[in-house]
Write a protein that binds this DNA or RNA. Sequence first.
DNA 1: CTGTATCCTAAGGGATACTG
DNA 2: CAGTATCCCTTAGGATACAG
Lengths: 122, 122
Amino acid sequence: MKDFTYNGRIYYSPVELTMAFIGGTWKMPILLVLRKGKLRYGELKNNIPHITDKMLYSQLRELEKKGMIERKVYKEKPPRVDYFLTPLGKRSIKVIDTLNKFGEHLMVVNGLMVNNRKRPQN
Amino acid sequence: MKDFTYNGRIYYSPVELTMAFIGGTWKMPILLVLRKGKLRYGELKNNIPHITDKMLYSQLRELEKKGMIERKVYKEKPPRVDYFLTPLGKRSIKVIDTLNKFGEHLMVVNGLMVNNRKRPQN
DNA sequence: CTGTATCCTAAGGGATACTG
DNA sequence: CAGTATCCCTTAGGATACAG
């Protein structure tokens, strides 16, 4: 048995734990964007297409709790908040890069092409 | 825009595609077990603790459709079926190993210990 | 021993509206 | 600008029963 418990839940393999930290639809895209360095909320939003406020905030909070990112609040107005990677977060980037590479390979294998912006069909 | 479509669904990054192939609770454990070589259904079941028949079968079917594993049926009785990795599946092992390593690191960082079998508390 | 089908619940995630 | 809350729906995944 290699079971272990984290936050009251049972995990059966380290892989599962990894997915608890960086899994889901949005955590990886967020982490990847933050590799650029400190970013404030609006910048994050602009760099992650299609994400909703709810998802961005909830995922930021989770990543924070798990020690992947940090938040720095500036006492200014209008309010300013920066998000940036912790050492653990930076470490995860390498893992995500691996997943990204494999994904690109899958695209080739399956003959997938990036959606080109359709020209007006006149 | 780096969007692309696969099986009628829109993906926004290669990472998402990767997760479609090896994501979920059980696909990675299954692939990892198959690194040992050909295995029949019963052997798979025995080597993946806590998995239910429904999940094992459904995930095997999905992995097959995606070209990660193959099925070989022997005309015997009782029936015998072998499952084994395709080249693509073998390639995924390296990725999963990366995730596994990171998970082990997370366990250390979070001070998680493997659940020891409790001794009878007499 | 291999393989499906049905029922049901918990959780992830989208849309939308609202506040300091 | 940054940050929450509520409603709702889809889906992964568990339990169980059944079939060649």
